[in-house]
């Protein structure tokens, strides 16, 4: 059985997504959580590029990919800002200690 580049890329997408979600569920450190989120986003970007290449819309998909990267950088920056502020105010970066709001 010949493994085509497409299959490999799809496997990478799935692998990165799985890794990211797994990380989101088990990591306690907020900074690492943000990194996990970024990993999933990168998997999605890769997926969109592959999708565009598959049907000759590479131009479109590359534009989309770049925009996504920009937008998600903004999200990551905001998230990091929150994390820093939380560290300052509460002295912790452990997400499990952030559980005052419940019920």
């Amino acid at each position: 059985m010949i493994i085509s580049p497409l299959t490999i890329s799809l496997l990478v997408v799935c692998g990165l997504t799985g890794l990211g979600f797994y990380g989101l569920l088990v990591t306690r450190n907020m900074i690492k959580l943000i990194m996990m989120l970024q990993i999933i986003v990168k998997a999605a970007v890769l997926g969109i590029v592959i999708a565009g290449q598959g049907n000759g819309q590479l131009n479109l998909s590359q534009n989309v990919a770049i925009t996504i990267i920009v937008v998600d950088t903004i999200v990551a920056v905001v998230a990091l800002a929150f994390a820093i502020q939380i560290r300052r105010q509460m002295g912790t970066l452990d997400i499990r200690e952030l559980a005052s709001l419940r019920g």
Binding site: F21, L25, L33, L98, A99, R102, G103
Partner: peptide
């Protein structure tokens, strides 16, 4: 029902999955 609102982010993400 309110017990399901644990305040844990990762529990919330389990809800998403």
């Amino acid at each position: 029902a309110t017990l399901t609102q644990t305040g844990q982010l990762q529990w919330n993400l389990v809800g998403l999955i």
